[in-house]
Write a protein that binds this DNA or RNA. Structure first.
Length: 309
DNA sequence: ATAGGGTCCTGGCTGC
DNA sequence: TGCAGCCAGGACCCTA
């Protein structure tokens, strides 16, 4: 379940391995993996061939590699990736065995001093996707002039995604005002990528546990201090996860070298049904909500009188 | 416009 | 032991 920390781990790996490489050839092995690329798999592959990838960028759970045609010219397009539930971006030797759920393969030319290498998109459940998208000015970061490395630009399909809590442009006060205008529950709001990006089911539960807020708490009743508390909790827990390589439950989430992270052992709420709360000892409760699970402490996070879903 | 529910997808696990 | 059915969930899509 890659959320912000896991995607950032992948971004860092790609920064090390693919930056400055030129695409020799892209192959789409499963059309669903590029379903959001409206012009189809052949167009997707055609747009990648011959282009050089710049340092990867990220917002929330989205990751993109700006594509350069010429040095010192601002990129106009990017390879945009979302890992979904089970997506992996793996780098390695081009002639290694194909993975079972290999969906897209991108081979790079071996430049000077560059060992042959390819980038593979492997995705069991195919909720993830890749596409080549136009880069447009980033409304979140302000009107900074587009730079040759792609700074100040975002892929057009994700212009509606809000800043994530680990980026400089994140505005906690603006989020508080938006929450007060909403008529929904705090967890649903945390999962709404147009309000705050990068938070998924796991880190939403962890942030709410740390902030001692119930998931069904109406957003319009939040105080400024409570909103600040849950944002700080989300930042803290995601930074802690990032420091140990992210959260892994199984081999489905791995970094570009295929290695798992270690944060699962540090989770306080998610997946801990009936286990004792690490603050008060009460058994952690699991509720059904939005067709998924919510884990919380019944004592530290009491259900509000007026609950919102 | 916003709120909220349905849907996709595969394989590991559960229970009969 | 075999196998049907359940479960995981991000973001798009639809309706009211």
């Amino acid at each position: 379940m890659p959320e912000l920390p896991e995607v950032e781990v992948v971004r860092r790996g790609l920064a090390r391995w693919t930056t400055g490489r030129t695409v020799e050839k892209a192959e789409v092995l499963h059309p669903r993996a590029v379903r959001r690329h409206a012009a189809g798999p052949a167009d997707f592959a055609g747009r990648l061939a011959g282009r050089t990838v710049l340092p990867p960028r990220r917002r929330g759970k989205y990751l993109w590699l700006p594509l350069a045609d010429a040095p010192s010219e601002a990129p106009s397009e990017a390879l945009l990736a979302h890992l979904g539930m089970s997506g992996q971006l793996l780098v390695g030797e081009p002639d290694r065995e194909p993975q079972k759920h290999l969906r897209v393969r991108i081979a790079f030319t071996g430049g000077p001093a560059a060992d042959p290498l390819d980038l593979r998109f492997v995705d069991q459940r195919t909720f993830g996707h890749l596409m080549v998208a136009e880069l447009v000015p980033d409304a979140v970061a302000g009107a900074a002039a587009p730079a040759p490395d792609g700074a100040g630009l975002v892929p057009a399909p994700i212009v509606h995604i809000a800043a994530d809590p680990l980026e400089d442009a994140f505005d906690g006060d603006a989020l508080y005002r938006a929450l007060r205008r909403r008529r929904t529950g705090i967890k649903r709001a945390l999962l709404d990528q147009s309000l705050i990006s990068g938070v998924g089911n796991i880190y939403a539960d962890e942030a709410l546990w740390r902030a001692r807020l119930h998931w069904a708490r109406p957003t319009e009743t939040l105080t400024r201090a409570e909103a600040a508390r849950v944002v700080a909790a989300a930042q803290d827990v995601m930074r802690a996860a990032l420091a140990v390589g992210g959260t892994s439950f199984d081999s489905l989430y791995v970094d570009v070298d295929g290695e798992s992270g270690y944060f699962e052992r540090s989770l306080d709420a998610y997946g801990r049904r009936d286990e004792p709360c690490r603050r008060c000892g009460s058994p952690i409760r699991r509720d059904e909500f939005m067709n998924r699970s919510s884990y919380s402490c019944p004592v530290c996070q009491p259900r509000p009188r007026r609950a919102r879903y």
